[in-house]
Design a protein around this nucleic acid. Structure first.
Length: 489
DNA sequence: AAAAAAC
């Protein structure tokens, strides 16, 4: 088994790009998948988040494109020979940028198309001809139907985040796209999560595939410390703010289940003095890309987002992920917390569990195969809101910035795959462990907030009884649950 | 109970 990129004997043009990016040792998924893709086999690949799946398929794919000449007699000099499909626009953008870097010294051309952007520049790119096309499904169909691109020369299809691409929301578009491709082709599926059902479905799209499972499917990255805190539905905002301060989280993704909730939480945190951006599907693409960029460059510390940002986004050294809401689908939890602890760095994942989340937590326990016991969280008393710079005031309070803590420890030697050199130039990010036991925040006895008494929670649990005979009981709307809590009954 | 992906 090869373990370093240099042993792969890739084209010098690809090797040069790889070396330039600082890649030396391969990750397990890379070591296993690259040789198989180089053989031209179909692959179903599962590996934990942040372990370099993009390079695992794009490097050997580019190599194949270079070595195996396009045998077609098509007049088009640059037909699309490889198609990479992704479930979100930001992810398509990111993967396209990565592919472009890998292909930098080759003569292969690549392009990306996704929605929310002007069609025209994309059309121009396509008409010039590209060998590698990265896309989201809807916009690609637009271009196909407008005859801006022809896919009858495609030799390789990659479904990244394959389980998402094969789920019911995407499947119709995906089917339509696949219908335009030659039947004779190589198909590569990659994800960190595969349910047994999706695996079966996926198998029907593959031809004599090689299955590569570097980890147990659905396994979270081992470098992420996971914590769960109990919080009343009405206390979640305060709980979050308190945790952000006491853990001294420098930068974090904060996941919210709904777009509206996302917008609201972002606004509230902004008001509290946190440097915040919101990312969700109701924003214009321009705003979305700006929010992401601001977070990437450290201009913004908190990225409040929906599951649009749950998968694949690779932002270096984000120390923490908060689940303000428990995700609806347990596998999304795996992806969300995978935004931290990437490339061998360590990360912290904090999930707020409200009384109504019992069923979701049960699902999560089933997927993670471990018991979850949310810790109670003693909330400090409300502080006057006018205090400025709470967030940046850590130093005023005599605490250190917590820089780099917990980041170094998780890095194992020999797992350097291209992230070393630029690290020092990045703004400092990190999180500190919770305050010592005698910290005033933690010394206060736990006081359930009004509207969150244990008795009320019990009542709520009853409303959310587990399904009987496979039939779910009616779930009362949130407002009713809130009313129940308030009544304390 | 939601989000995502096209105009």
């Amino acid at each position: 088994m090869t373990s370093s990129f240099s042993e792969l004997q890739l084209s010098p043009t690809i090797d040069r790009a790889v070396a330039e990016m600082g890649y030396t040792a391969m990750t397990p998924i890379q070591a296993q998948a690259i040789p198989v893709v180089l053989q031209g086999r179909d692959v179903m690949g599962a590996a934990q988040t942040g372990t370099g799946k993009t390079a695992a398929f794009s490097l050997p794919l580019l190599q194949r494109l270079l070595v195996h000449e396009n045998s077609s007699t098509s007049p088009a000099r640059h037909p699309v020979r490889a198609l990479v499909l992704l479930p979100t626009r930001e992810l398509a953008d990111q993967v396209a940028q990565q592919v472009a870097l890998y292909a930098k010294y080759t003569k292969l051309r690549s392009a990306v198309v996704f929605g929310g952007m002007d069609m025209k520049p994309q059309t121009l790119e396509l008409k010039k001809g590209v060998e590698v096309l990265v896309a989201t499904p809807g916009r690609l169909l637009d271009h196909i139907e407008a005859k801006n691109v022809v896919l009858n020369q495609v030799e390789y299809v990659v479904l990244d985040e394959a389980d998402r691409m094969l789920d019911i929301g995407f499947l119709p578009d995906l089917q339509r796209i696949l219908a335009y491709l030659p039947r004779q082709r190589t198909t590569l599926l990659f994800s960190a999560t595969f349910s047994p059902e999706i695996k079966r479905l996926a198998a029907s799209y593959l031809n004599d595939p090689v299955t590569i499972e570097v980890a147990r499917p659905n396994e979270t990255a081992s470098t992420v410390e996971q914590r769960f805190y109990a919080a009343g539905e009405d206390d979640k905002r305060r709980a979050l703010q308190q945790l952000l301060r006491t853990l001294e989280v420098k930068q974090a993704f904060i996941f919210v289940n709904s777009k509206l909730g996302c917008a609201r939480l972002a606004r509230a945190l902004e008001r509290e003095g946190f440097k915040t951006a919101a990312l969700h599907g109701d924003k214009s693409q321009d705003e979305r890309l700006k929010a992401l960029e601001a977070f990437k460059c450290g201009e913004v510390d908190l990225l409040v987002c929906t599951d649009v940002a749950a998968r694949g986004l690779d932002i270096k050294d984000v120390p923490a992920v908060f689940n303000y809401d428990v995700p609806f689908h347990a596998e999304d939890y795996v992806h969300r917390i995978g935004r931290t602890g990437r490339a061998g760095a360590s990360g912290l994942a904090v999930t707020l569990v409200a009384p109504g989340d019992a069923r979701l937590v049960a699902e999560l326990e089933k997927l993670l195969k471990k018991k979850i016991a949310p810790e109670p969280l003693a909330l400090e008393h409300e502080r006057p809101r006018s205090r400025e710079g709470r967030y940046g005031s850590a130093d005023d309070a005599g605490r250190t910035s917590g820089r780099d803590r917990g980041r170094e420890s998780g890095r194992e030697s020999g797992r350097e795959w291209g992230r070393g050199s630029a690290r020092e130039d990045r703004p400092q990010r990190g999180f500190r462990s919770p305050a010592p036991a005698h910290d005033p925040f933690f010394d206060k006895p736990y006081e359930p907030s009004p509207g969150g008494t244990p008795a009320a929670w019990e009542a709520v649990e009853k409303v959310l009884a587990p399904p009987r005979n496979g039939v779910s009981p009616n779930i009362k709307p949130k407002r009713k649950i809130a009313a129940l809590l308030k009544a304390g009954s």
